[in-house]
Design a protein around this nucleic acid. Structure first.
Lengths: 223, 223
DNA sequence: ACCTGAACACCGTTCAAGT
DNA sequence: ACCTGAACACCGTTCAAGT
């Protein structure tokens, strides 16, 4: 039986960084950040916990690599030749949708600004802003403003996803937050109370794009 | 000795939610999020770990209460009668500075959008936007855009604070990130590379305000 | 070179028992 | 009513031992 080891290697494929990251993404998507434990990962890969550490430095690096992977897919997907403003909207929306689908990416984006995930976003946005023209200092301001806005929405979405019970739908969640807002002391929170209805009825994607457009309008105004 | 229990009660003051939250803020400020463990907190308060849970539901609630406290102080501090635009800048800068001083607040702000911390910010900003006038739908867009931008910067600052070794200063950190950016592949990241110098030399507060102004310009433009 | 899995040093939280 | 602290059920990470 000279092919025996060969067969075994085929059945339980050799561990690799790629397989580990892919399994991590699956676990994160299925159960959120809390579900990704080294033991769960090792179990799904049918190996020992220690084996993970041969391919990956620690859990932090694993989380970062998983987020990099998801964002890289987005950026390549939206790459295309459009008008700068439209391209920026597409990039922003791509990131938004990716975080909507994988909320754990939202919390990851904040760590280590030199990671590919953030870098890809900065690079593609600033490429478009460059095409738009204007002085270099203004461009730096514009990229960081857009990036921070996107990150802010990303983080908020990730946090919301952590809060809503897996079964409940988005509008039920918004409805309950709106109800809380309505129940606030009118003397202390008059404006928040007034906004409750809009909170309840708004569409997240539209709202996100409205913010992008607001910033783009600002960029156009100061240019 | 009828006053004995009295004396003891005076020396080791009775536990209370306020004392616990105050001690938590101290620990968080001194050692960051990682330093706040229930055991550390109990130790500092000279009590058992279980005692904490008599006054506070769990660690999450404790973190949230600590953040609420810090933000509430900011909002009351910047309250004053100024021009709306200037007031918004003051509120934003107040939040920015608070998170600069207490980075752990940055990560907390994302959780639970009905918590006082976020509510205070929304209320005060939207009060000023109301004074600025314009249609109600546009005002909702404006508040959320500003809030998400502020949250984005907050989260990024908190993440950076977690990364820099407690001793290193800000400019050394920026220098090292800028060096990484410069070392990137020019074919893959031409624009990021170009921005490295600006990243190195920028001032965080100015940069933050430039973003606020960009959004305010956008708000003025679409009104 | 790569993998195993027990062991280590932690966590947050609970709860019988005390005062 | 409030506090104690041991105990429980977890973590991430390490490392001697195997192949």
């Amino acid at each position: 039986m000279p092919k025996k080891t060969h067969r075994i290697a085929r059945r339980t494929e050799a561990l690799s960084r790629e397989r580990i990251v892919a399994a991590a993404i699956d676990i994160l998507d299925a159960g959120g950040e809390g579900a990704l434990t080294v033991r769960a990962l090792a179990g799904r890969l049918a190996t020992g916990s220690g084996a993970i550490y041969w391919h990956v430095a620690d859990k932090n690096e694993l989380l970062a690599a998983a987020a990099d992977e998801v964002i890289a897919r987005v950026i390549t997907a939206v790459a295309g030749s459009k008008e700068p403003q439209e391209a920026i909207r597409a990039i922003a929306l791509g990131v938004f949708d990716a975080i909507d689908a994988h909320p754990w990416v939202g919390s990851q984006l904040f760590r280590e600004p030199w990671r590919p995930a953030t870098l890809e976003i900065i690079e593609s946005v600033s490429g478009q802003l460059h095409a738009l023209g204007g002085p270099r200092a203004a461009q730096f301001n514009s990229v960081t403003a857009l990036l921070h806005y996107i990150l802010g929405v990303a983080g908020q979405n990730a946090a919301n996803a952590r809060l809503v019970a897996p079964g409940t739908d988005r509008s039920a969640f918004l409805g309950s937050v709106a109800a809380r807002w309505t129940a606030l002391d009118p003397a202390k929170y008059p404006f928040v109370r007034q906004m409750a209805a809009q909170l309840r009825d708004h569409d997240d994607r539209e709202q996100f794009l409205a913010g992008v457009d607001l910033i783009l309008a600002g960029i156009a105004a100061v240019r």
